[in-house]
């Protein structure tokens, strides 16, 4: 029994049309069907947060959605963060500068979780950052560098916003 459906979605601004088995998760669709392997799969049951992406601007676990549920949606993944010329997103730069990653496995989920969080809370306290990241597991860093990077990025993004206005 293989049941497929035709779906259409926008990923990082690029429109994709594909025919996909209905039981395939959105995470596997991104990785296997679209070749976007920046989204990582750790636990595949919603605990580790590594596969976090944005669906219509809201953070979601891509292992807990079916690809067919994203039909018509706008998806953002870690591949879309840096500029076309390779300039890192301020959050990525802050992770680099603050040693916010070691093995890098959890990083895409950390970044996408923080993108949404910093949008709604541009000036968070350390406690708020830790609470926001409580759904993302990192087994290397002990979180210190990640929290420092998030706070640093928030400051950079605020400065950038002031510069633009």
């Amino acid at each position: 029994m293989t049941e497929t459906r035709k779906i259409e979605m926008t990923v990082n601004g690029v429109r994709h049309q594909l025919e996909i088995e209905t039981r395939v998760t959105l995470a596997d669709c991104l990785r296997h069907h679209l070749g976007l392997t920046g989204t990582h799969l750790g636990c595949e049951h919603g605990v580790c947060g590594a596969c976090t992406i944005l669906v219509d601007g809201q953070a979601a676990r891509s292992c807990l959605m079916l690809a067919v549920q994203a039909d018509g949606a706008a998806i953002a993944t870690v591949e879309g963060l840096a500029g076309d010329d390779g300039t890192l997103h301020p959050l990525q730069q802050a992770f680099h500068d603050n040693h916010g990653l070691q093995c890098g496995f959890c990083t895409p989920g950390m970044l996408m979780t923080l993108v949404e969080f910093l949008e709604s809370n541009p000036d968070p306290s350390e406690t708020e950052v830790r609470e926001a990241l409580s759904g993302n597991l990192c087994r290397c860093t002990g979180y210190q560098g990640i929290v420092a990077a998030a706070l640093d990025a928030a400051q950079r993004m605020r400065a950038q916003a002031v510069g633009l206005s």
């Binding site: 029994m1 293989t2 049941e3 079916l66 067919v68």
Partner: peptide, 11 residues
């Protein structure tokens, strides 16, 4: 870990 096959309906 992948979901088993099923018929999908989205009423």
């Amino acid at each position: 870990m992948k979901p088993p096959p099923f018929h999908y309906h989205d009423p």
